[in-house]
Design a binder for these strands. Structure first.
Lengths: 193, 193
DNA sequence: TGGTCTGTTCAGAAAAGTCTGAAAGATTAA
DNA sequence: TTAATCTTTCAGACTTTTCTGAACAGACCA
């Protein structure tokens, strides 16, 4: 599956092996287990490290470098989302913004900018959201996800009782977290897809 | 950017052109605008159609087939998420489930199954969530996204006032939508990343 | 110092993926 | 029916990516 994901088959296999093995493995064991050349494994591990998806460890009494994946699956999701954002989304947004700063020369260009603006706002909104919720504790995160579309009932509840929303303690939200709600207008961010 | 996304550069360019042009274009105009061979465009459009990302249209007085993208950016997101789920996530889950049905032969195999189970549950939970919220109206969707991590304050609110949660109207949630909340245990689904 | 073990780099082989022109297929109009 | 116009298919040229073995580099030990 990884092959459709910007990471190649070999690298995916190495990662999968580390994930299911559940213990740190040295490069030569990986090469043997998967029948890859030693150099191929070396490069694959390099790439995984650049994605922060594997950690290098030294085991006592063994000179070789050992590699392992994070224990917690949610940690994996967080890292992946962050790295993709950094590598793919942010540069895209930056290009879009540059284009949006130019003065449109005519009606066509204005229309094009409008479309780009919509795409930009969409991406920004999705990214912001994902940044935001990824900072939550795993436990809170799963609670939200389990709720699914049921979340909308909570929103209805809040809308029907605006008084409550206004007078509650603000201490609960994470630090860098603004209080957008209906205020914010242009989104900023994009998850994957 | 598309090149890291399982869709190739050419196809991405065609799509981008259709998106920003904002009107249906025939294949030969696309070929000319992007300096691709006519056949290359034909294949690219085929692929985009298989992803349901472009729609074929016939314009009065013109025999050529014209292609356009959905107007609404959210529609694009919905389609992409659905297709990726269908093509990549569902088959993955299915393989994982097969593996989980096998009886573990020893302690190691049991440990491996445990890791696979975690991955399966994670993917399932994310997918379920995305299926779920994608069914919402765009307006509700953006409201939720804008709220970001602020959502957690709503959850707190609900938890602190369990009475309210129990006695409200159930009509608001979409049809096939269960009411998981703290009930559901094993997730089932995965977004991207 | 040399020998052993481990990790990295890199040129080119191998494989995978992309693109094209030519030819064939469809549809419409006359 | 033929001609005109448009679309699709496909073999092979071309490009890009991946993988390998060999050579190199550094650490450690005797």
């Amino acid at each position: 599956m990884g092959s459709r994901w910007g990471i190649n088959r070999t690298v995916g296999q190495i990662y999968a092996l580390l994930y299911i093995s559940g213990r740190p493995l040295p490069a030569d064991e990986i090469a043997e287990a998967l029948s890859f050349s030693r150099s191929n494994v070396s490069m694959g591990l390099k790439e995984l490290q650049s994605w922060r998806l594997v950690r290098l460890q030294h085991l006592p009494g063994d000179r070789r470098e050992h590699f392992s994946t994070p224990e917690d699956v949610w940690q994996i999701v967080r890292i992946l989302a962050e790295e993709r954002r950094r590598r793919e989304i942010d540069p895209t947004l930056s290009v879009l913004r540059d284009l949006l700063l130019k003065k449109p020369g005519n009606e066509d260009e204005r229309a094009i900018q409008h479309r780009l603006q919509e795409m930009h706002d969409l991406i920004e909104l999705l990214t912001r959201w994902s940044e935001d919720v990824q900072r939550l504790e795993t436990q809170q995160l799963t609670q939200i996800l389990r709720l699914g579309a049921g979340i909308i009932r909570l929103l209805d509840l809040k809308n029907s009782l605006p008084l409550l929303g206004a007078k509650r303690r603000p201490a609960q939200s994470p630090p860098g977290d603004s209080t957008p709600d209906e205020a914010a207008l242009a989104g900023e961010g994009m998850d994957d897809d």
